[in-house]
Design a protein around this nucleic acid. Sequence first.
DNA 1: CCGACAATTGGTAGCGCTTTCAATATTGCC
DNA 2: GGCAATATTGAAAGCGCTACCAATTGTCGG
Lengths: 356, 356
Amino acid sequence: MGESGLSAGKPTIDDVAALSGVARATVSRVLNGGPNVREEVRQRVLKAVDKLQYKVNMQARFLAGGKTQVLGLIYASDLDSEPNSFYHSGLELGALRACALVGFQLLMHTVNQHSLSKTSKILELVDARRCDGLILTPPFSDDCDLLQELEARNCPVVCISPGLAAQKMASGVGIDDEVAGYEMARYMLQLGHKDFGFIKGLEGHLSAEERFSGFLRALAEAGIAESDVIVARGNFTFRSGVETTAAMLSHAKRPSALICANDDMAVGALFSAHKIGLQIPQDLSIVGFDDTPVSEIIWPPLTTVNQPLKAIGYRAVEMIVERIKAGKTASGPLPLRFDVVPHKVVMRESASPPQG
Amino acid sequence: MGESGLSAGKPTIDDVAALSGVARATVSRVLNGGPNVREEVRQRVLKAVDKLQYKVNMQARFLAGGKTQVLGLIYASDLDSEPNSFYHSGLELGALRACALVGFQLLMHTVNQHSLSKTSKILELVDARRCDGLILTPPFSDDCDLLQELEARNCPVVCISPGLAAQKMASGVGIDDEVAGYEMARYMLQLGHKDFGFIKGLEGHLSAEERFSGFLRALAEAGIAESDVIVARGNFTFRSGVETTAAMLSHAKRPSALICANDDMAVGALFSAHKIGLQIPQDLSIVGFDDTPVSEIIWPPLTTVNQPLKAIGYRAVEMIVERIKAGKTASGPLPLRFDVVPHKVVMRESASPPQG
DNA sequence: CCGACAATTGGTAGCGCTTTCAATATTGCC
DNA sequence: GGCAATATTGAAAGCGCTACCAATTGTCGG
């Protein structure tokens, strides 16, 4: 009953060629916008494509072409570490948006960062030709061994918020955490604070360390030594914020400003402070980093620094596609670069001048 | 300098065949765990694979085999609707975990649910042979037109929380929202509440509607008519929660219990109530749905119902892989099914007996 | 020791598309 | 009008792997 006696199943390029009376190669040309095709022929082919409802089989196209048009986005999954779902979602959304624009697909992949086979799990993706490039999020964006292996395979990579060492091995995108820490400290200093508390995050988490050193730099400029600030270490969770803050506030010398390495801990701090009857921000200013959704929902709304996650994810895709294309034209490898996207201190109500 | 004079570039199956002195087909057999290979030969091939660091090119394997071992996870992205990042992250994490186990990859894809081409955008994924099956999240899991197209293409699909109509067209996973609403209402009733307020979500959002009807059913059983409850409609956001609540509380007859269709709005309600000096839960009990991270961080911690997102995502992958395999063995299509995973009312501190 | 039958292994035709490379058709210019 | 240069089109060689089928080898029972 069909229009023509073509083979069953999905139409292939040959079906289109047959129907439009040209060679397979010609169909391929019009499909790929190649030059040198008479307009009349192009139309004929297009009509056949339309009539047959033909769709190229990417699987085949890429086998022939040696590419996949797929980008891998790698992120860590330990325990059920929900804490970062906000972070990853943001990056992913941005990446997805950019992908849609440039015609790539996004393959998600979680890897247990403590697994011994973490590196091979990731390499497998590129060795098996499942993707053309990788976007690495922390902590993988700092894994120099991994980066080296990827480099050896000539696989385009873009790191999200890589550390200094990693920045020398691959391109990256992120905010300038040191400056963010610096600015936040400046803001608090300017409010009049002199007694600081700082809750650090997990050891080895580079962004957080950077924020801390930026913070220290601002303090140093204001003549405050590191030894004058009460620092504690949490693990980025709400609970750890609650606990470290409770301990810190029972201290003889209570700070007037408490800076937390991320919002979840800041919210925990808020919770702890409320519990012992402190008024925020009158009795204690508390600020965080990240601008998670909670931070503006909590009472009082949290002063924090916003990191444009979607923009970062978006930019990462742009950068990697650029590298992939460059690799194709073989016009020499693109120089490494690190794009810093602007962060923003968002002032809400959890910080005010001391004893305000 | 290499071990043997093999071709440059990535080793192919032929290189392995050559090195181990067997035919390509035999290598393929050992690679795929095929039967009928002498142990001695198998070892020889394996050794060659190892020596060459050979990795199968999935691209090629799947072209030949007609599959991709890739699952597409579709979700909506309107505006910058962050609200659901928690929801999607949970599903994704669960799906990813299951994928790792069954050897599939997860391709993420966002589609603007209001776009005219939304259906074709999704179909393109399967038409272009980029994935073997699709996991649809709301609202796509309710799009019967889409489901029909997919059905026509014989593409395995699993819907997350589909509505009744969709359940008749494809398999699905989710909690029983109606029962969840019913249970929550029962709980509040049992606490002694008689005056209810309900903030609904966006029109047409099935899960939310179901929750509402379950709620109504419990009330009816207790002799309370729908007309006795003050209902308002929000759009699932924090902001809409604060606004609708503000309006509702200025009402002459103020409810003693306020049920919100999701946590974000409940948190907004909490915010609004606090603002006008109400004590929660003494003056007003407020509950939500979803058990988002915020709900246990807020003060007072929110009573809500937990939906095991990761388990749902995980199950969705299991189901779809099952269908894909069934399709392969062509032992007749698998019967449709809807798996309900258990939800849980989590009682925290935002609800108590009235005037408690 | 021989034919029947099962266990192995090799040969090879695709999967559906891109990409030279050669063949043919046009066009421009003296 | 004739020849080189240019625009079009077709033929065929893969991309790397799977799967079907034929060929080869080995194993038994009589």
